[in-house]
């Protein structure tokens, strides 16, 4: 049943669109399609972004690993390397700090009428992605594979049952969120 759904290309495009509409609706209601809120997070004065990301992570982590335990979902961790994850992450961060949107919230910002997102950010990301594809063959031979560690997860790395990581991470995140709320951030 699920396999048939996964294989139907047209159905998948429809599911993608519906999930996207719900995702965009939630992002806008959360306020994170706004430059002011995202920059507030990066300036450490407004913790909305962290609150949303961490509660999404904990909910999704428990849910997806449960689905996996029931045999109805599979994990798709992305491969990584120090050259790609660290350097790429820091480059992304510089863009994040200047643009004040990330690719997903940018699409949402365009939807609420932010012209800096449409004519600045969107055009910029498209140019950036095009530039990357130009230099990709060279980068792939060099820095992108420096310190390659592959598609590994924390439970695989430490060779433990996933739940012995999920439970402490959940408790840690809840404690952090509780602390954030208590400090009035």
């Amino acid at each position: 049943m699920l396999k048939t759904i996964h294989k139907s290309e047209k159905l998948q495009l429809g599911i993608g669109c519906i999930l996207g509409i719900l995702f965009g609706f939630l992002l806008q209601k959360g306020g994170v399609t706004k430059y002011d809120v995202i920059i507030g997070q990066l300036l450490l004065t407004d913790f909305t972004v962290v609150k949303i990301m961490l509660s999404a992570m904990v909910t999704g982590m428990i849910g997806v690993y449960l689905l996996r335990n029931f045999g109805v979902a599979a994990l798709h961790p992305k491969p990584g390397s120090f050259g790609s994850s660290v350097i790429g992450g820091l480059i992304f961060g510089v863009g994040f700090g200047l643009l004040g949107y990330c690719p997903g919230t940018l699409a949402g910002a365009v939807g609420q009428g932010s012209l800096d997102a449409l004519l600045g950010g969107l055009v910029g990301i498209l140019i950036g992605a095009g530039l990357f594809s130009e230099f990709y063959p060279k980068l792939d031979k060099g820095i992108l594979n420096k310190g390659h560690f592959g598609e590994i997860t924390w439970p695989q790395l430490f060779k433990v049952n996933p739940w012995s990581i999920i439970i402490p991470v959940t408790i840690g995140v809840m404690a952090l969120l509780f602390w954030i709320e208590k400090s009035g951030l």
């Binding site: 990301m53 992305k78 491969p79 990584g80 790609s84 994850s85 350097i87 790429g88 992450g89 820091l90 480059i91 992304f92 961060g93 510089v94 863009g95 994040f96 700090g97 200047l98 643009l99 004040g100 990330c102 690719p103 997903g104 919230t105 940018l106 800096d116 997102a117 004519l119 600045g120 950010g121 969107l122 055009v123 910029g124 990301i125 498209l126 140019i127 950036g128 992605a129 095009g130 530039l131 990357f132 594809s133 990709y136 980068l139 992108l144």
Partner: peptide, 19 residues
């Protein structure tokens, strides 16, 4: 915004994903 977008576009592909 456009400069930030260009840097972010490169960074997202470099790191293989976004936020």
């Amino acid at each position: 915004a456009i400069v930030g977008g260009i840097i972010m576009g490169i960074g997202a592909r470099w790191a293989g994903g976004c936020t």
